[in-house]
């Protein structure tokens, strides 16, 4: 546990996290290794864990029936993968695939949700960290929708 807690505290997502909160989150964490091509999760699966990338790159993909998967974002070290664990019905709506060897920390979603419910200070800390990630991703999506490099019509 000591090891995982230390690794978690090194991750930018948990920068300046209070030690007691670090210990609580570490209680829900475990190490993962994904080989290139492995899926961290697939669309429709239960969103029971999210990931903090330590090494390697993950592609987020959407698949439309009859078409090749479209990659709409790649994430790397220091970033987090997965948001659907936060809101019901807790199911992934995208695929996340390792494009190279990925080492990550997985956080058990039910475990963390339970701890956030029991300790609202922890819950608020988690929200403060997740919200900027959501906002940045929302902005990125807006920019992608604008298709700014296309011709003006």
């Amino acid at each position: 546990m000591e090891g995982l807690e230390h690794i978690l505290r090194q991750h930018p997502f948990f920068a300046d996290f209070a030690p007691e909160h670090g210990a609580l989150v570490a209680g829900c964490a475990r190490n993962h290794r994904f080989d290139p091509g492995d899926y961290l999760f697939r669309e429709g699966d239960p969103a029971d864990e999210f990931f903090l990338i330590r090494h390697g790159k993950v592609a987020l993909e959407i698949v439309a029936p009859g078409q090749a998967p479209i990659v709409f974002a790649t994430l790397g070290p220091g970033e987090i993968v997965g948001e659907a664990w936060l809101v019901p019905p807790y199911r992934w709506t995208i695929d996340a695939r390792a494009t190279e060897l990925v080492r990550a920390i997985g956080i058990d979603a039910a475990c963390l949700r339970g701890k956030c419910e029991a300790d609202h200070h922890l819950g608020y800390e988690m929200m403060k960290r997740f919200l900027p990630v959501f906002i940045r991703r929302l902005h990125a999506t807006q920019l992608q929708i604008l298709d700014v490099y296309g011709k003006k019509r």
Binding site: I70, F72, R136, Q144
Partner: peptide, 23 residues
């Protein structure tokens, strides 16, 4: 280098260019 979107055979970054700044 990043592209706004790509098929799975592209091994580079995908996402908008401002997302590269914090990295």
């Amino acid at each position: 280098v990043t592209v706004d979107h790509a098929e799975a055979d592209w091994h580079g970054n995908v996402g908008v260019v401002p997302a590269l700044i914090p990295r």
